[in-house]
């Protein structure tokens, strides 16, 4: 396994040819190459241009997006988008940090319609809203459910 690269500078220096690093040269705020997986952090408001940039760089298939709740840290939520390239046979993870109060992220359904259900799931289970999503409603929980179960301040047993 390759040595981990922990900073944006190290990633830029050691992986100058990587298509995602080149495509996100202007947008990346942090980068990490750990356990053979490349993570590039972009600002929340830049996620749509970032997705368009990696898409035109050959990362054509959107696989997954999910959130991690880092309570009590701030920014509280980190979203991880996984995108794979059928041509390059490589995967890139785009990370987005979202603040805990009033979490809103632009929706990427305009770039990949497949993000639709995933964003609804995050809205349902984490309470993060996606601006511009065509139909942002609960998907797993009943429509009258209170709270967002995957948040860390939500007890595993639920409220009784």
């Amino acid at each position: 396994m390759a040595e981990p690269l922990l900073t944006l500078e190290a990633v830029r220096e050691n992986m100058p040819e990587n298509a995602a690093v080149v495509a996100l040269a202007d947008l990346a705020t942090k980068a990490k190459f750990d356990r053979n997986e490349l993570t590039i952090t972009v600002a929340a408001e830049n996620i749509v241009p970032a997705c368009q940039a990696v898409q035109s760089a050959g990362y054509n298939f959107f696989e997954d997006v999910t959130a991690v709740d880092w309570l009590p840290n701030e920014p509280r939520f980190v979203l991880a988008y996984h995108i794979v390239s059928h041509k390059l046979k490589e995967r890139v993870r785009l990370a987005v940090e979202v603040s805990g109060d009033d979490p809103v992220v632009p929706s990427i359904t305009g770039v990949w319609p497949s993000a639709n259900f995933y964003e609804r799931e995050i809205f349902d289970l984490f309470g993060i809203r996606f601006a511009g999503h065509p139909r942002l409603t609960r998907i797993m929980m009943p429509i009258d459910w209170e709270g967002h179960p995957l948040r860390k301040d939500y007890p595993v047993e639920g409220y009784r």
């Binding site: 750990d34 997986e37 696989e63 997954d64 999910t66 991690v68 991880a80 993870r93």
Partner: peptide, 20 residues
């Protein structure tokens, strides 16, 4: 500490586990 995404070709398609 760290995060990984492991994808496997399941009978139905790409099954991925993201573990933090």
């Amino acid at each position: 500490a760290g995060q990984v995404y492991q994808a496997v070709e399941s009978p139905r398609g790409e099954m991925g586990y993201y573990v933090v």
